[in-house]
Computed example of a mutant assay.
Amino acid sequence: MRLDCAIIGGGPAGLNAALVLGRARRKIMLFDENKARNAVTRESHGFITRDGVKPAEFRALAHQELSKYPSITITPVKVTTIEKQGENCFVVTTEAGERYEARTVILATGLKEQLPAIPGIADYYGRSLFSCPYCDGWELRDQPLVIITDTAEHAFHMGMTVYQWSRDLMICMNGGEKLEVEQAEKLRSKGIQVFEQRIKGLTGSEGRLACVILEDGVELKRSGGFVTSTWAHTLPFADMLGCELNEHGGIAADDFGRTNIDGLYAAGDASVIIPAQLIAAAAGGSRAAMGVNTELMHADF
């Protein structure tokens, strides 16, 4: 079966790309392994009409809407390889050995994140520790918060940002870079304390943070906060296909998702990386779908 487009990844970028292409009457297949990065998240925010939606509910609603379009097929399998074979032909192979030919491909594979090596941090991530203040800052407003990071740039930027939601704020550098004197003084002038020591551990219950314990025994009573992670692509397709990367490590793409490989598009967190928001990823999927449809339209007309 020859597809107009194979979409790899069933998050908001892939789902919205499928919707736009399905409505354009393109024959597409959405490959969804269902291993979302936000699986630990209980609610997603910042998406108008869906503010506070549970990720599983969002996905179910999207699948229900896509089911109206007969040219969309959703396949719940893992893609293992993607090969480009000549012009206008990609061969997508699944874990089960099934092979599909597609004229174009959209990579909407998202990201995986590596949390700092702090004992127990995963127990709190997605419940009281988060990565994006725009997504979860409102729920933590006016609480005693902590920012956990190890780079000066992130510390200062996050300090300024999170200050909008809470003035009771501490920054833990976890033994990482030291802030510039001017940055440290600016933060202190706003009442934001900075601790350079490594973090020994965290305490709390049922995912609710209560205390950050530093290696010198100092205890910081905090009820939540934000943590900076390192990001990596979930699957090796960018390397496999020879994609160029942008300054943040995402797949370099233009405003309509076009990569440096003809017929290959990228959308969502896999391309943008920052900001990693539900609505931004969905918008990227829509733009990539328009790019794909335009390419196919010119090829066929």
Score class of each variant (00 low, 15 high):
N38V: 05
D262R: 10
L21M: 15
P116Y: 09
S67D: 14
E65C: 07
K68Q: 13
R99E: 15
V146R: 08
Y265C: 03
D136W: 06
V77I: 15
G204K: 06
T203P: 00
H298P: 00
G284N: 10
K112Y: 08
A238P: 01
L140P: 09
R198N: 15
H248P: 00
K200Y: 11
D239W: 07
S286F: 00
E33F: 00
G110S: 04
P133F: 03
N246S: 08
A62R: 06
L15F: 07
L19K: 00
Q164R: 12
A36Q: 11
V146T: 15
A36C: 00
Q193D: 14
V181W: 11
G46R: 08
S205M: 06
I121F: 05
A39S: 14
I251D: 04
E196W: 09
D4G: 11
M240L: 12
D255M: 07
A36S: 12
I8C: 02
L140G: 12
T161E: 06
L296Q: 10
T75Q: 04
V212C: 03
C211K: 13
M29Q: 12
H233D: 07
A283R: 11
R50K: 11
C172W: 08
N260V: 12
I82R: 04
C172P: 00
R167L: 00
P55V: 01
V212P: 04
D51M: 05
A24D: 05
L107M: 08
V194G: 01
I118M: 10
I213R: 14
R141W: 01
F58C: 02
A270N: 05
E247C: 06
G268Y: 03
G120S: 07
I8W: 02
V53C: 12
H157C: 01
R167S: 13
E98M: 11
M240F: 04
G284L: 07
G9T: 03
Q164V: 08
R2N: 14
M170A: 14
P116R: 08
F301M: 11
S71H: 08
V105Y: 04
V212K: 08
L140I: 15
P275L: 02
I273A: 03
C89F: 08
A267H: 02
S128K: 09
